[in-house]
Design a protein around this nucleic acid. Structure first.
Lengths: 228, 228
DNA sequence: ATCAAATGTGGCAGAATTATGGCAATACAT
DNA sequence: ATGTATTGCCATAATTCTGCCACATTTGAT
């Protein structure tokens, strides 16, 4: 299954050239010349990569809008910007748009192709590393691949529910999680007392290892947080 | 209250140079040379801006990881990447990571300082429009994800109602809030004396940290405001 | 200066929230 | 079948929060 790339570029000749070169690398290329067309295509074809020209038609910054709109449809679709002028770089860098890379139109074709390949590799790598994520914070280590939690290098023997709660707290240390958030996105309802019980058991297990443990802080009226 | 900037750069001489130049502009600079140290600092100091070298030690892309991890802690902290080699510009995949700007180490110091100032301006504009997670004003910090208020970097332990009242005052420093506005959108009626009591307790808690505290001003007949 | 209205202060009781220990139901392995 | 671990929940205790009251003090206007 070849990777599908959507190329949004309004100048026909340039578009043709790019498309041809990319196709030769074994990718499928879909070309679009305007925003609306591009959005529809992203929605229907679910491409693997998007290459956006920044200026489309008379709108010199249409690509930026498009990027935002694509991001609102998909967080995972990698996006590369094509910049006509070097000065565009200043503008790009200022915005936290959620693009993955940018290329100047001056860049040589082989170089461009290399960057496309590199981006695919990086995305691949990201997706594999993201689940094997280890969260480390001071004395705490949460390994969501081994479903293992360590405190001062000693293993804390948690149940699955307990593990996810610690994971949720550790993921954003210092931020307060309410009871729903702690139970993850599973839509099963459990009453407040149950969460309280889980917290109780988690604290107990940490304290069995380290009697002075008190890093799970309750925030009255809201929830809990991992103390920083 | 000077803006705090965290600078993560592993090469001591370079680090020193940058720090010195930035300090001369009136910013506070905290320097770190590794990921772990940087993360801890971000969490504890809640700086206003982060400048990250991409390569740290033997890991040529450590800065990217760091950026991701910082983003998972705070969405609002502006991040600038420092790239050593021009070729880094080619490999920058940082846009997607949520960085706000890039600088080459070749860039002249005045230019770098200008970009820092520019970023602060942009963030300022953003923060006043968007309901941002962190409100900073002089010695005050209100973080609505952590449900935490700090005064001179010391935590003020407020109850939820108190927190929202401070939040309401801090959101529009200098503007007078009447009693209803201070109690937020909850339509429950509480009598005036109750609000007075809350203000009393808030002032007391701030004074426990800083006995000279008097930034909550009473506007006779109208309400309260955070003194500018 | 005097008065009424508004605000500050300390304290208290009820309300709301959370902590703790235990129990029953279930699942799982031996 | 027996033992173990897990989970949800309950009753009770402990803690924290909140609204309000009585009384003192300040403010603004006459």
């Amino acid at each position: 299954m070849p990777k599908q790339i959507i190329l949004v570029e309004d100048e026909p000749i340039l578009c043709e050239n790019y498309a041809k070169a990319i196709k030769e690398q074994g990718y499928d290329v879909i070309t679009c010349s305007n925003k609306q067309e591009a959005l529809t295509t992203v929605n229907k074809q679910l491409p693997d990569l998007a290459i956006l020209d920044i200026g489309l038609g008379d709108d010199a910054e249409a690509g930026f809008d498009l990027c935002r709109e694509i991001r609102s449809l998909s967080n995972s679709l990698p996006i590369i910007f094509l910049t006509a002028r070097d000065s565009d770089f200043d503008t790009i860098s200022g915005l936290r748009l959620g693009a993955d890379d940018y290329l100047s139109k001056d860049t040589s074709m082989p170089h461009i192709l290399a960057r496309i390949a590199a981006l695919f590799r990086r995305v691949q790598a990201l997706q594999t590393t993201i689940d094997s994520e280890q969260i480390k914070y001071e004395q705490l280590l949460v390994d969501s691949q081994r479903f293992q939690v360590k405190w001062n290098d000693e293993e804390v023997d948690l149940s699955l529910t307990e593990f996810w709660m610690v994971h949720s707290l550790a993921k954003r240390v210092g931020h307060v999680k309410n009871r729903e958030q702690l139970m993850g996105d599973s839509n099963i309802y459990v009453d407040d007392g149950t969460i309280t019980s889980h917290i109780k058991r988690i604290r107990k297990k940490f304290k069995e290892i380290d009697s002075s443990f008190d890093h799970i802080e309750t925030v009255y009226g809201i929830g809990y947080r991992w103390k920083t």
